[in-house]
Design a protein around this nucleic acid. Sequence first.
DNA 1: ACACCCACTTAGTAGCAGGGAA
DNA 2: TTCCCTGCTACTAAGTGGGTGT
Length: 801
Amino acid sequence: MSGDHTHNDSQIESGSRVNGKSILGPTLFCIKVSECREHKVQIAVIWRRRMEKLGDPIRLPVAGCEQDAHKHKDKHKDKEHRHKDHKKEKERERSKYSNSEHKDLLEKKHRDKEKVKQKDGVDRHKDKERRKEEKMRSLDGKPKKEKENGFASPPRVKSEPDNDGFYHSPKHEKLLKRERDDNDLEFTPKKIKVENDKKAKKRKLEDEEDIKPKKKRKDKKGDVADGKKKGKKEPEEKWKWWEEERYTDGSKWRFLEHKGPVFAPPYEPLPNKVKFYYDGKHFKLSEKAEEVATFFAKMLDHEYTTKDIFRKNFFKDWRKEMTSEEKGKITDLNKCDFNELNDYFKVQSEARKQMSKEQKQRLKEENERLLQEYGFCVMDNHKERIANFRIEPPGLFRGRGDHPKMGMLKRRIRPEDIIINCSKDSKHPKPPPGTKWKEVRHDNKVTWLVSWTENIQGSIKYIMLNPSSRIKGEKDWQKYETARRLKKSVSQIRAQYREDWKSKEMRIRQRSVALYFIDKLALRAGNEKEEGETADTVGCCSLRVEHIKLYPEKDGQEFVVEFDFLGKDSIRYYNKVPVEKRVFKNLQLFMENKQPEDDLFDRLNTSILNKHLQELMDGLTAKVFRTYNASITLQQQLKELTSPEENIPAKILSYNRANRAVAILCNHQRAPPKTFEKSMQNLQTKIDAKKHQLLDAKRELKSAKADAKVRRDEKSKKMVESKKKAVQRIEEQLMKLEVQATDREENKQIALGTSKLNYLDPRISVAWCKKWNVPIEKIYNKTQREKFAWAIDMAEEDYEF
DNA sequence: ACACCCACTTAGTAGCAGGGAA
DNA sequence: TTCCCTGCTACTAAGTGGGTGT
């Protein structure tokens, strides 16, 4: 099949982020594996190797690992027709490494031409809502049918964990129920559309085993009575939205009621004794100017405040808030002394820490009250948690990387800036006394409750629901279903792009090479960005010539491409990958007659690419490859790494390693924890102490043995036994500590959370837990379990991604 | 073919709470 | 009891990708 990539070479090394936040570090570890056909295998090899050396910090020195600090230079100039005048020097130390290749069984599956976008696509079934509702009301839960991703018809009324009628709007209840019976669809031309039957059936067949909810009936009965009330009694009984149908007409809800956002607390002027000095002299600032000054003062210890751009932007915006008198006087930021302000805030935060138990308790309760009041909404008859119900407070913008706007003033959001979205027939949130909302709208085609426009980039910010909500969960589930569909057609797609490497058309060659990178290396799509508005970062389609280097031969491998660029969040991507000759030749071609700052793929952008992908498979976009490759890698790795005889902690270690393989693939980095060195040192101290202890114990054992030899009595024999046990115990403890150290070291710069939360089909993890009897709590914490409730409920141990 | 807008997902980190070690 | 550490959560920036209008 086509996916045969020949070999890979991956590495991980340390590096630093461009904004200087993270530490420059020495090479942490390198991995190199050659001659692997698939990256899954490759990673498995890596880990196996590591496991053999357990206890050995994973530092596999490898030829070809770059240890040198990398200088990252981005020059941005004339790109095609637009130009840029931008130069950047970056120095990063975080690094990167890895790559992937995959090959899957193929099972060619061609999807119907129709779009699956059930949102807008098929819309032939409509419903008569009312009728249905009535009907539903009178019916009981019935068998459901599977829908595209297994959504089935549901119980009709739901129950929720708690809620004493919070926001209960009985009068709407009937209107809110969602359909549960497919049969209705045929007759209901009104609102809820459902994907067309054929498709549904088909998919049903395909996916049935995997997705079918297993315990659907269980709570139906109860639910029927009245969803909202029951929570109290059976807090465990959560609403299983995944057993219900989805809207397929593009609407996101029928009913939405909430209390609006919580605004940032108003500014509290500083006490008089806290003084700001300009040019050595006390200067009393106006309230507005003072507020902005405090934003800066609070950050004094932060590196941001040493950066020129930050200071310049801050000062410019600060001056806008000044009175004309202040403006006249305060003309040089360097003459400003914010130290007293800074000290004041430090004292405050210290005081906060020192608060008595009762005070803390009170604070906590107050927070809880706010949460209860504003932290939930009612969406379609269910109380759902809101993710971010607080409006972002004013402050100084902290862009990541070399952000041209860092330090600018993020202004305070007022009710007049806020757009509220809710149902017409809901109780609308009230603006604070004496104020008005900018607008109240009733758009059920979107999921947000509140929005406003932010002043730094002019983008829109939203208040939306928590990941545990139905609306987010459905989407998440759907995402993994799309990735699974890709699994079925990936081999064909790979064959296709390999074929396209030979195309006569430049644009097709570029497209196919880019796709190869996206697939093999899990690169992001790489939308274009507006220059000067954001940090200079790139993804696949926006790579520039300066971001790659070609080596016909390097470190004993042929056709090596070296990537070195800043990706999302200005995280450096550094990797050296052997590629196929054709790819290599194509790259040479793409680079011909270009300047370093020119686009590598000048005939390609994400929308062209995605349009093409869309033709290959419904719903396919560049990011699906990341999801697919991440999940398939996890599954593969778990198979490779888990050994049945291991105990639970060892299994968890295996899981973490599988997870880590994915994190490496996706380049999920983190700054080494601030306390990393120290805590590592502590651990090392413990290890050393343990080693000494072990030596002592061994010595004692030896002398006990000698003693026993001489004395030959029971007592001394027993002594020998007990010394033996002691040695054993200490050895185990030592081993444990060393494993811990290894694990921690391996994780120093790798963030597992992002992949766990966004890329790994949770059903894989759930199935793995079930299969090996690992409690799910060991893998997912409470929040994560809430987010993945659907997967936990439906995946059985034989689940296959 | 674009530029722009909008909605929504993905991302790393600051700061804190809470649990265990000293 | 205090201290220390770690994991979690909240926060918000920075991506992706669809749609629209020209």
